[in-house]
């Protein structure tokens, strides 16, 4: 399992109710089911991956989170997970707030556009950055709304979202992000992981 998934899993309470939005082939959900005994659900847009998830014994619904989250009742989960897909929605702000309506907490991970390699890439190449965490070229990327860790902080402030925990992942290492080190972490983190609530 990837380091960032490990960190994410560490934030989930045992026996909690979890919704993994964009759960892919269900690997993370299965891991949580086995190791944290969670009561897990998933939404995934790709039919093949839904089938893979279902074959793992997971309760996964084929659907588009952007359209379907509205159908979930308030506070029906303890945790909603959005693993590196916030930037792929047409309206990430609405999705973020929907997550916090459905679940008491949300765990959101983002590829950080503020990472120094990304900045250098744009600064010196003059082209849209292609890096390990952002492997696609501008014309075929699924990412519609790239943001930085700082951007995410600002949006949370704007929408009165409380950041309970925020973790930086970079070069195989993890560290905490705080208000005091936000600027530097925004520069040094490849991925940001946030535990948020309202």
């Amino acid at each position: 399992m990837k380091l960032e998934d490990d960190v994410l899993a560490g934030l989930i309470d045992i026996n909690s109710r979890v919704l993994d939005v964009g759960c892919g082939d269900g690997s993370l959900l299965l891991h949580l089911k086995k190791n944290k005994r969670v009561d897990g659900r998933g939404i995934e847009i790709d039919q093949k991956r839904v089938q893979e998830s279902v074959a793992k014994g997971l309760a996964v619904i084929e659907g588009d989170a952007e359209k379907d989250l509205i159908n979930y009742p308030d506070s029906s989960f303890d945790f909603a997970i959005l693993n590196q897909s916030l930037q792929q929605f047409y309206d990430p702000r609405v999705v973020l707030n929907e997550l916090l309506r459905i679940a008491k907490n949300a765990i959101v991970t983002i590829p950080n556009f503020g990472y120094w390699k990304v900045r250098i890439n744009l600064l010196f190449q003059g082209t849209m950055p292609v890096t390990k965490t952002l492997p696609n070229t501008w014309y075929n990327t699924p990412n519609l709304h790239m943001c930085t860790i700082k951007d995410f902080y600002n949006l949370c402030k704007l929408d009165n979202i409380k950041i309970i925990k925020s973790i930086s992942v970079s070069g195989g290492k993890i560290s905490n992000i705080q208000k005091g080190n936000l600027e530097i972490k925004n520069l040094l983190s490849e991925i940001g992981i946030f535990l948020i609530t309202k």
Binding site: R17, V50, V54, L58, A59, E62, G63, N71
Partner: peptide, 18 residues
């Protein structure tokens, strides 16, 4: 049906076959 089951937290999977 899926929405109704979700609303009560039932364990439900759903696939639309193309």
């Amino acid at each position: 049906i899926v929405i109704a089951l979700n609303a009560i937290g039932a364990e439900v999977s759903f696939v639309e076959i193309i």
